[in-house]
Design a protein around this nucleic acid. Sequence first.
DNA 1: ACAAGAAGTGAACCATCATTCATCCCTTCA
DNA 2: TGAAGGGATGAATGATGGTTCACTTCTTGT
Lengths: 213, 213
Amino acid sequence: MAYRKTPAELSRLEAARERLVACATTVVAEVGWAQASVTAVADAAGIAAGSVYQHFPSKAALAVEVFRRAAGREVEVLGQVVHGSGDPVERLESAVRVFARRALENRGLAHALLAAPAEPAVGAERLVFRRRYRELFAEVVREGMAAGLLPPQDGEITAAALTGAVGEVLVDPLAAHDADATDVLLAELTAMALRCAGARPGRRPSARSPRTP
Amino acid sequence: MAYRKTPAELSRLEAARERLVACATTVVAEVGWAQASVTAVADAAGIAAGSVYQHFPSKAALAVEVFRRAAGREVEVLGQVVHGSGDPVERLESAVRVFARRALENRGLAHALLAAPAEPAVGAERLVFRRRYRELFAEVVREGMAAGLLPPQDGEITAAALTGAVGEVLVDPLAAHDADATDVLLAELTAMALRCAGARPGRRPSARSPRTP
DNA sequence: ACAAGAAGTGAACCATCATTCATCCCTTCA
DNA sequence: TGAAGGGATGAATGATGGTTCACTTCTTGT
């Protein structure tokens, strides 16, 4: 009799689950949470609707997993920048640039993570991750104040403002889509962010084309 | 026979419609769009669910009307401040303070207008009004630049950032609710906004308690 | 006061999905 | 090879909530 154990069969299960999460992420990035029905997601993954429940107890659980994975990646990347090298102001500038660039590279996903209407479970998760974004920005702002590079301010509020500001600029169809316009947008955004935190202007003119990580 | 004409009966109809919109606004401010079912709204207005369709062809139409009224009031008030007296920087500061204060005074409504998940029709309307907010901020930023009070920048981007920043700070449960904390929050917010637009600091120390319209 | 017409009612209707489950099929082990 | 244990299936189920409509109630003008 075939007992419930399976040597490499488990990996097939795990792979199917991963594939499901990946496909669901794609669907959500393309059509938003509201249009991402269980059927649509299952179709995209090439499985039946019922099979989704082999991997997740509910649609909400799948949605939360999708959100956590995607948002976690962003927080991870942002954390690397914020905790990287350079003075606090440089790191703040890099953080905003990286945050914005990644969002511009995958607008659909950025919209889903930051703004798209979603079920309550995802909304709650969104608040959690927004706070993480904010905490990262707040850290570097506080460091900048401690180093005397930024004027006294409430780091939390500045951080919240930066999160909201970048999101607002990115989310609705304001900027063009060609690479040149993207560079200009990034330059304006980072300049705005530095002003917002009170960094003294006129350090570097915020170079356009050369690669600035 | 009573023909379809009605002298003062029309006003009763109009009053009922107004009452419906007002009650729906209250419900939305209290429980959000998602929980504001036709039944709930009708109950709040003291009418039957079916009667809603005497005044609006669909729930979406009612929702859009509710949104337009409320958001229109905000745009109106903001426009008065932006087109009021004082130098551009003063008007920018006032605009942010008024925007934020009004939102703090009615958090539920602010959340509904700025962030709460909503049906597509309301989402579309939200984009329209966000653009109006932005245009107002952008105007005063451009004036500030023309007057040499603000450094060169993309007024649209700064305006979008201000809208997003204020929304972000206000919307999620960050700030306390007592009057004192509100004053501090408003002071920090306006200071952040002035930095964000690049206004030279140190003009007025942004008084706390005295009434600053 | 009465008839006609409009507004109000709320239970029934219908569409949309998430979820379930009887069944099928594939893999595993004797 | 064959039987058994689970994953996979997808049509049926159920819940939710917007919308409709046959009927009641109210107002109006004769």
